[in-house]
Computed example of a mutant assay.
Amino acid sequence: MSASHNHSHSHKQLNYNRAFAIGFILNAGFVVVEATYGFLTNSLALVADAGHNLSDVLGLVLAWGASFLSQRPPTKRYTYGLRRSSILAALLNAIILLLVMGGVAWESIRRFSNPSPIPGNVVIGVAIAGVIINTITALMFLSGRKRDINIRGAFLHMAADAMVSLGVVLAGVAILTTGWLWFDPAISLIVVAVVIINSWQLLWESLNLALDAVPIGIELLAVRTYLSELPGVIEVHDLHIWGMSSSEVALTAHLVMPNGHPGDAFLAKVVQELHDIFGIEHTTIQLEIGDPNNPCVLAPQNLV
């Protein structure tokens, strides 16, 4: 049994340090302003939005830290580096956001039975500022949201915040127009529903990546078919595809080639095509000739 390895390291890590820094400063400052006005005016919508924004500030810090750690070089202890930290950050972001929204929903339901008067003009003014700040921050992460689940987590948080703040604006307008105080907790519940819907996919996708599931957008059967149709390959087994980080995909596979090692040019071509066709960045291939006297112990599909 012979083993051949070829790896692609051409992938450039997304660097959003400037976006994270600007987003953190803008949102942390806004949380202080919004929470202060929320408590002074007794507005649940503002306090809820401030709490949500606070969770997003923490989320930005997590995503920022993970983005930095994922670019650290490998060590003797961590041979893949700390790339996986970006997946863990995305998972923690989704969990924190869902927990915060659960608390907001509980308080909103409680407030229905005892609504409090709020000055709608103050609510509208603060929330409009929130729409502007969150939209600016979200746009800074727009370009990387499809390539990196960690960046997408930051984008979804900010985009959801913009919608949340817009909802608060609507609550203020409704209260000024009708005088119906229940609009405040009602808008809060709508906000909670929007945020949960936007966060649920992030939760499951990051959880799946943490459990080494095949990343979304890659079809395992298509990769297997591509490998099995390579010249000289009669069998493919022990095929695994998983996320090394929130933006990098790894693959390992055993190819049975009775005619022996086809040369490094063959491996280089396979690595490049796996990158170009499927977006797989890190490929390791083991070549076997299929000697019946020395069968591969990992050939059965039920073995890992």
Rank of each mutant, 00 (worst) to 15 (best):
N150P: 05
S245D: 04
A253K: 08
E34D: 03
M244H: 08
V100G: 09
G103E: 04
T177K: 10
N208D: 12
N17Q: 15
A89V: 01
I132R: 05
A193C: 06
G51D: 08
L44Q: 02
T177R: 09
S228V: 06
L303E: 14
I151R: 08
S10L: 09
G232I: 05
C296A: 06
A171W: 03
I25S: 12
L91Y: 13
G263C: 03
S165R: 01
P300T: 10
N259A: 14
H282G: 09
R110H: 15
W182V: 15
Y78I: 13
I280N: 12
E219Q: 14
L230H: 07
V169T: 05
V169R: 00
N150K: 03
A213M: 09
V169W: 03
T135H: 06
D49S: 12
P215M: 11
E229C: 10
P119N: 12
S67D: 06
G144T: 06
S55E: 04
T252N: 09
H261T: 06
F155C: 05
A35L: 10
F266Q: 07
V297M: 14
G125Y: 01
S246W: 03
V191W: 02
H11M: 13
Y78N: 15
A21L: 14
N259H: 14
L99F: 13
D49H: 02
I25W: 04
A193T: 07
N134H: 07
H7F: 15
K76T: 15
M163L: 14
Q71K: 14
L54W: 03
I124W: 01
A222N: 14
L170T: 06
L251C: 05
F266T: 08
D148Q: 02
S116I: 10
G103S: 02
I25R: 02
I133Y: 01
L44T: 11
H254E: 04
I25G: 06
S43M: 08
V33I: 13
E229M: 11
I124A: 02
S116M: 10
G279V: 09
